[in-house]
Amino acid sequence: MICAVASGKGGTGKTFISSTMATAWKGELTLFDCDVEEPNARLFLKAETESVEEIGSEHPYLSDSHCNGCGRCASLCRFNAIMHSKGKKPLFFTELCHSCGTCMTLCPEKAIGRFVETSGTLETAHRGTMKILTGRLKTGNPLAAPLIKKILKKLDRTEENIIDCPPGTSCPFIAAVSPADYVILVTEETPFGLHDMQIAAEVLEILRKPFGIVVNKTENRVFHELNDFINKKKIEVLGRIPWSLETAQCLSRGELPEEKYSDTFAEIHLKAREDFQRKRGASL
């Protein structure tokens, strides 16, 4: 199964949960750290990087002699990365390009070629039977989604995988959850956590991705809005993890409280698998 751990709001505990869940798995597993702007799962897992691979993204370039200045490319670009004015040739803004390939594919004159530019790196590390693949965005490159898509091409569907997603609910989030079978949304009992989780849930509904919720750092406060949302949407609650100063201190030292949470996270993982099977069965 491919299980993605996402949240919407940052700092809810995605890396804590995905990394600890990976350590609790008995057997082979690949953990993808797709929080490419600040990947840190490997640091928590104390695994040494063994190899680094450069990852490139494809961007358009214009073959002047073939272009007739029709401007189709600019009108097709969803990312406003192409400027065109009548009678002139288009101007590409590579820094805005999401490497979707539309302009290259649909140019009527076949005047747009592609060049590859390094967008980041993929680092490989191991810890026991766990393989850790870390995506790291090149400093200065503002676009995470093309790199995440490239890195997730390494997914092997026949094996067990966990994806640690980037925060937010825009393109990088969508790129990271898209190949997943199931998404674990991590939230907290705060209005901010709930607000962003609701947006994430809405996006996952559009993507038709089955998902469940983990409420992290719970103080068992009566937070009606969160409970109402869970009940109204009939969302599976996979687990509630109590707030613990000890855990917060452990994590801020860069250590994972693996033993303490081994059973809890094995159970959350199992519940996620069961919920996935059930929802898949219902949709067949």
Binding site: A74, F79, N80, A81, I82, M83, H84, S85, K86, F93, L96, S170
Partner: peptide, 18 residues
């Protein structure tokens, strides 16, 4: 269309100007 663009508002606005 440019005021609401997710990114590249300046470029979209330039196209609208044209």
């Amino acid at each position: 269309s440019s005021a609401d663009a997710a990114q590249g508002a300046g470029i979209q606005a330039a196209r609208n100007i044209v």
